[in-house]
């Protein structure tokens, strides 16, 4: 039982870890672009904004299990297979990019426009503003958004069992549901609860410590965490 669970744990973390990395790499620029191209933004381009926004909305509203099936051909071109952990990472990451992008958009929008104006008055260009203002100033929120994304990805990864990717969700379904091994199911639930709590705790801690560096008191914004739950 133990090797089974530890393997499942490892599979979940592997899938979630890689897809988080890809989601952040892809979602961060996308979210910033959503803010910049919006009306009144630094790179105002209403048409582009509408197109990106629409893609993000559609991708977000697709149920993950459908996305996974729909992306099979794409997954095969990238990983060479549609089965296993690597194959699950592709739809997980693609599902998480728009999710994370929306969170980034909200976080970046909260940066005070006066700061942007100040850097413009110093002669800074858009890239400077992104690097020196938008990202560092919204960092606590961005960290919280990443935490939210990780937790959501753990949820999605339970469905990855359907493509033979393993993971804790897969154990709960195959052993807990199909074989009525209630004990094993409850163990997976407990492990998931612990893993999620640890991630949430670590994320909150990181967000708060970045926030506190700025000397502001009070907890890091948790609003977005609640929304995702």
């Amino acid at each position: 039982m133990q090797p089974l669970l530890s393997q499942a744990c490892w599979d979940t973390l592997y899938m979630v870890g890689w897809s988080t990395v890809i989601a952040v790499v892809g979602g961060l620029p996308l979210g910033i672009l959503l803010v910049l191209t919006d009306r009144g933004g630094l790179l105002q381009n209403v048409a582009a904004n509408k197109v990106i926004g629409q893609i993000v909305n559609v991708a977000r509203s697709l149920p993950f299990i459908i996305l996974m099936v729909a992306l099979m051909n794409f997954t095969r071109t990238i990983t060479g297979t549609t089965i296993g952990r690597e194959a699950a990472i592709v739809p997980l990451a693609i599902g998480a990019i728009p999710f994370f992008a929306r969170l980034v958009e909200t976080a970046v929008r909260e940066v005070d426009g006066g700061l942007v104006e100040a850097v413009q008055s110093m002669g800074g260009n858009t890239w400077t503003i992104v690097r020196k203002v938008l990202v560092p100033e919204s960092l606590p929120s961005l960290i919280s958004s990443t935490t939210t994304t990780i937790v959501a990805l753990i949820g999605y990864s339970a469905m990855a069992g359907t493509v033979g990717a393993g993971g804790l969700g897969d154990i709960a379904i195959r052993y807990g549901y199909q074989r009525f091994e209630t004990q094993l199911m409850w163990i997976t639930v407990a492990i998931l609860a612990v893993v999620i709590s640890l991630i949430q705790f670590a994320g909150d801690y990181a967000a708060r410590s970045v926030h506190r560096r700025g000397g502001r008191s009070g907890p890091a914004p948790r609003l977005r965490l609640l929304k995702a739950a």
Binding site: A118, Q120, G123, P136, R216
Partner: peptide, 28 residues
């Protein structure tokens, strides 16, 4: 265009500006 070109940005860097709400970066 709506965006500031290089020359304008260089000219701006020679004009200082202070703001009512200070506009300091809290992360720095």
């Amino acid at each position: 265009g709506p965006r500031a070109g290089r020359e304008l940005r260089q000219a701006r860097s020679r004009i200082g500006m202070v703001f009512q709400h200070f506009n300091l970066l809290s992360s720095r």
